[in-house]
C-alpha cells in the first residue's frame, strides 16, 4: 500500500507545486490523477520515486518512508517502483531487449550490466514480458525503429521487469492517437489486475480516465479537490477541478464548428456540381 501524508513541494522559484497532499492507494487499485496543466500532477508522481525531491511530508510504500532515504537505499526502493513515461523515454539507440533489461539495472552488478550479461532468469522474464505486451518478434530491433504505441508497450515491459510493487504512469497516452491510447490503457489495467498492482496514472483525457480508472483524484493548484469513483465525476466536480469553464458553451462551440464545416462542404459540393 502507498500512503502520502501531507506532502508538499515548493520549487526553488517559490512556486508551490503541491501543498499538503494526503492520499492512500491500496493494493490493486488504479487511481487516475486529473487536473489542469500546472496543477502538480507530474510533480506528485515524481515525488514518489524522488525524481523530484519533496519539500515536506511523508511517503510510505509498504511501511518504508521514502522521503528520508539515503542515495543507496533510495535506489533499492526505486526498484520497487515502476515508472512509465509520457514520451516513452526509451533509450532510443538501444535495442528493445536492452530497454526491457534496463529494468533490472537496480538488481545486477555494474560489470554484468555493462557486458550485457544478465541472468538467464532475467532474460526469460524479459522475453515473457515482451510476449505479454505483444512484441516478442521485435526484441532485437532498435527502440527508435518502433511506432509510438509499440514504444509505450516496451516502456510498460521495462517497468514490469523491475518486478514493482507500484506503478507510476505519467501521461501514458499523451503522444498517441485515440485508438492506440485505448489499447495502451486496456493493457495497463489488465496488467495491474493480473498482478494486483497499485498504480497512479496521470491522465489529461477525462473520458479515458472515466472509462479505465477505478478511482479518480482531481488536483487543482497543488491540492486535492476531488477523490471518488469515476461515476461521481459530474460536471460540478469537473468545474471544481478545471475551474469555471463554461462546458455548455464549449460544447456549443464544437457544434458551431461542426456546422460551419458541414456548410463549407455543402457549398464546395454545389460549386463542383
Amino acid at each position: 500500500m502507498l500512503e502520502l501524508i501531507s506532502l508538499s513541494k515548493t520549487y526553488r522559484t517559490g512556486d508551490a507545486a503541491l501543498s499538503d497532499v494526503s492520499l492512500q492507494v491500496p493494493k490493486g487499485q488504479i487511481v487516475g490523477l486529473i487536473g489542469p496543466s500546472g496543477a502538480g500532477k507530474s510533480t506528485l508522481i515524481r515525488c514518489i520515486n524522488r525524481l523530484v525531491e519533496p519539500s515536506t511530508g511523508k511517503i510510505e510504500l509498504g511501511g518504508v518512508d521514502l522521503v528520508t532515504l539515503g542515495r543507496r537505499d533510495l535506489r533499492k526502493q526505486r526498484r520497487r517502483i515502476g515508472m512509465i513515461f509520457q514520451e516513452y523515454a526509451l533509450v532510443e539507440r538501444l535495442t528493445v531487449m536492452e530497454n526491457v533489461l534496463s529494468g533490472r539495472l537496480g538488481y545486477v552488478p555494474f560489470w554484468r550490466s555493462y557486458l550485457r550479461r544478465f541472468d538467464a532468469s532475467d532474460i526469460q522474464r524479459a522475453y515473457q514480458l515482451l510476449d505479454r505486451v505483444g512484441l516478442l518478434d521485435h526484441a532485437d530491433k532498435r527502440a527508435d525503429a518502433l511506432s509510438g504505441g509499440q514504444r509505450q508497450r516496451v516502456g510498460i515491459a521495462r517497468a514490469l521487469a523491475q518486478d514493482p510493487d507500484l506503478l507510476l504512469v505519467d501521461e501514458p497516452t499523451a503522444s498517441l492517437d485515440p485508438k492506440t491510447s485505448r489499447q495502451i490503457m486496456r493493457l495497463l489495467t489488465e496488467i495491474c489486475t493480473e498482478r494486483d498492482l497499485p498504480a497512479i496514472v496521470n491522465i489529461h483525457d477525462v473520458p479515458l480516465a472515466r472509462q479505465f480508472m477505478q478511482r479518480i483524484v482531481g488536483l487543482r493548484a497543488g491540492q486535492i479537490v476531488f477523490d471518488d469513483a469515476p461515476t461521481a465525476l459530474t460536471e460540478d466536480a469537473l468545474t471544481r477541478i478545471y475551474g469555471a469553464e463554461d462546458w455548455d458553451a464549449m460544447r456549443k462551440g464544437d457544434i458551431d464548428q461542426a456546422e460551419a464545416e458541414n456548410d463549407a462542404i455543402r457549398q464546395l459540393a454545389e460549386v463542383g456540381a
Binding site: 533499492k76 526505486r78 514520451e87 523515454a89 533509450v91 539507440r93 534496463s102 555494474f110 550490466s113 555493462y114
Partner: peptide, 29 residues
C-alpha cells in the same frame, strides 16, 4: 535527452549504470 536518463534513474540504477545505459548510447555516434 534528459528523459531517457531520468527513466534509467527511475529503475533504481546506480550512477555508473545510468552512464552506460542512459548517456553512452546517446553520445556514441
Amino acid at each position: 535527452d534528459p528523459k531517457q536518463i531520468e527513466a534509467i534513474q527511475a529503475t533504481g540504477a546506480g550512477p555508473a549504470e545510468v552512464l552506460t545505459y542512459g548517456v553512452v548510447p546517446q553520445v556514441m555516434p
